[in-house]
């Protein structure tokens, strides 16, 4: 139902997995009261698709990503990866969290190697770590410790740590939120290039409408908490996209309207 009419009608490489979110609701218990966070969210993502989630702060975007990652089980509904029910974390679904959360006691190289080490395949696959570090342009920092990196570099290490596992689904939680606008734009093109080359399915949370439009095939707009899907918008434009594109500008206006921000436009 999704990428059907996209201008780029991409023939995605076989790497990406299909992600199916079906009637998912979730809530937290705070001081005995129940705080509903997700309300019957259903979303089908095709293999290799790039989907952006937009929504007001605190509406439940990160919570949805934690469910996709398998770090928590939903109170209701089902999540599936390639028809298989998600019951726990798996390295085929890797998350880049809102904070880079690098391990401060590990060098850049060792941080990136984390996934392969945890899966017990580091010994034979060391070159993959080097490749991932080269990919994010940090070859000369492989022996640095996290406290010696800038915020943007730390985010890039977090990205490399995820990519080294060759995920089928890459989950990004505002990975560029803390970067300055220049680094941000550079990283955005890097992410698109990587996605096009590797073909993984991508689920990106962002609060930047422009970022969502420049990167994604499809933008999902969520309501206030508890989050519900308000709109599902296909972005039919080939890559690389241009920020000044009037088509994107029109979509941006529409989305800001959905988020209740017409007045500022």
């Amino acid at each position: 139902m999704v990428v059907q009419s996209a201008a780029e009608a991409i023939t995605y490489p076989a790497v990406g997995a299909e992600l199916d979110i079906e009637g998912v609701s979730h809530a937290f218990d705070i001081d005995g009261a129940t705080l509903p966070v997700l309300d019957n969210v259903s979303l089908a993502i095709a293999p290799g698709e790039f989907v952006a989630l937009l929504g007001p702060s605190g509406c439940g975007k990160s919570t949805l990503l934690r469910l996709v990652a398998g770090l928590e089980r939903p109170r209701a509904g089902v999540l599936r990866e390639d028809e298989t029910r998600i019951t726990g974390p798996h390295p085929s679904r890797v998350v880049v969290f809102q904070d880079p959360t690098l391990f401060p006691w590990r060098s850049v190289w060792d941080n990136v190697a984390l996934g392969l080490e945890a899966q017990g395949i580091l010994k034979t696959q060391r070159h993959r770590v080097d490749d991932a570090i080269d990919l994010v342009g940090l070859s000369s920092f492989r022996n640095a410790y996290p406290h010696q990196l800038s915020g943007g570099m730390a985010q890039r290490v977090a990205l490399a740590r995820a990519l080294v596992n060759d995920p089928k689904i890459l989950v990004l939680d505002e990975p560029l939120g803390k970067l300055d606008s220049l680094t941000r734009i550079a990283m955005q093109s890097e992410i698109v290039a990587l996605w096009q080359r590797k073909g993984f399915t991508t689920l990106l949370v962002t609060h930047d409408v422009e970022e969502a439009l420049v990167l994604a095939n499809r933008v999902i707009v969520l309501s206030d908490r508890p989050a519900r899907i308000k709109a599902d918008i296909a972005v039919q434009r080939p890559y690389p996209r241009h920020r000044g594109d009037p088509y994107l500008a029109e979509l941006r206006k529409q989305i800001l309207g959905l988020l209740g921000l017409e007045a500022t436009w």
Binding site: L71, P91, T101, F103, R106, L114, N165
Partner: peptide, 24 residues
């Protein structure tokens, strides 16, 4: 957050103790 990162990367409980909890 450290445990979450390690778990999504495929860490087993022994890895969480030896390579996350203890060094931290």
């Amino acid at each position: 957050a450290y445990y979450d990162v390690a778990r999504t990367l495929g860490a087993k409980p022994s890895f969480l103790v030896l390579k996350v909890a203890i060094p931290a």
